[in-house]
């Protein structure tokens, strides 16, 4: 059975985690490390993927021209294109709750999303060819990881054809956005557990206008213990990808091949 190391990083600032991902991605690409699954949470952060339509996500009500006139609109790949605080978002992203959110344009598929404490984020840095060569099948596998986890907490979730992600009665609970280069993956999925859902209202999550987000705590009407859900995610990752998970005690020293 294949091995996959699990690194539970706790709460990590998005940019730091992104940099760490890139390091691991490089190492995995050169076969210096084995498959790695990062599990973590982010402080309040908005990220914008390079969604297929026009390459940029849309903020709600389209108040912000993300593709300014007369200027080259591309900047997302020069990492990390970071804007602190409210930079550039003076109109739409107002409101105290967002005052402290970080904003990143990211090199992953998909549209805009929000990350915050209480949401489980999973970043598999794996050699995909050992599992599938079908990129969409990979998306389905990540959905299955989240759906299995939810089932463990008595939440029935569904796929919605044409809308990648995990849904509960028409409301979105899990989102996906990945990057696959030369068969190695990065970025991944996020599952709403206890996190505040209000910040999603400020964006058009995943380019789906009018989408309603939900969370495990909203559905179950009680806060969950994060470590239990993390456990569930890890177990179901092992099941779906048929790997043996090896927990790394010191996450900053990933084990070598």
């Amino acid at each position: 059975m294949r091995r996959c190391q699990v690194l539970n990083l706790g709460l990590v600032e998005y940019g730091k985690a992104w940099e760490f991902q890139r390091d691991l991605f490089r190492a995995r690409s050169q076969n210096e490390i084995i498959d790695t699954f990062l599990i973590l949470q982010h402080p309040p952060t908005y990220t914008f993927g390079r969604c297929s339509q026009g390459g940029r996500s849309i903020l709600s009500e389209e108040k912000i021209p993300l593709n300014p006139p007369l200027l080259k609109g591309e900047s997302s790949l020069t990492p990390p294109f970071r804007k602190g605080g409210m930079g550039g978002f003076d109109r739409s992203l107002s409101g105290e709750d967002i005052e402290h959110a970080d904003i990143y344009w990211v090199d992953r598929g998909g549209g805009a999303t929000y990350h915050g404490p209480g949401q489980i984020v999973g970043y598999p840095i794996i050699g995909l060819k050992d599992y599938t060569t079908d990129l969409h099948a990979y998306l389905r596998m990540l959905e299955e990881v989240m759906m299995g986890t939810l089932k463990g907490f008595q939440i029935e979730s569904q796929r919605l054809k044409g809308y990648t992600g995990v849904w509960v009665e028409g409301e979105k609970i899990g989102s996906i956005g990945v990057r696959v280069i030369r068969g190695v993956t990065m970025h991944g999925f996020s599952l709403n557990v206890n996190n505040d859902l209000a910040p999603f209202d400020k964006i058009v999550p995943c380019n789906i206008r009018g989408v309603r987000m939900t969370s495990m705590s909203r559905i179950l009407r009680s806060e969950l213990i994060m470590s239990e859900v993390e456990e569930g995610v890890t177990d179901h990752f092992a099941r779906v990808f048929d790997v043996k998970m090896e927990r790394v005690s010191n996450p900053l020293q990933p084990c070598l091949v």
């Binding site: 992953r108 598929g109 956005g177 990945v178 990057r179 030369r182």
Partner: peptide, 27 residues
């Protein structure tokens, strides 16, 4: 760099040689 649904990826060159013509633009 290409994108499909929620996946971004890249196409590697199948051969070594000279790029003679790009037939489709970004976006």
């Amino acid at each position: 760099e290409i994108s499909t649904d929620k996946v971004d990826t890249e196409i590697p060159s199948p051969v070594s040689g000279l790029v003679t013509k790009i037939l489709h633009h970004a976006d």
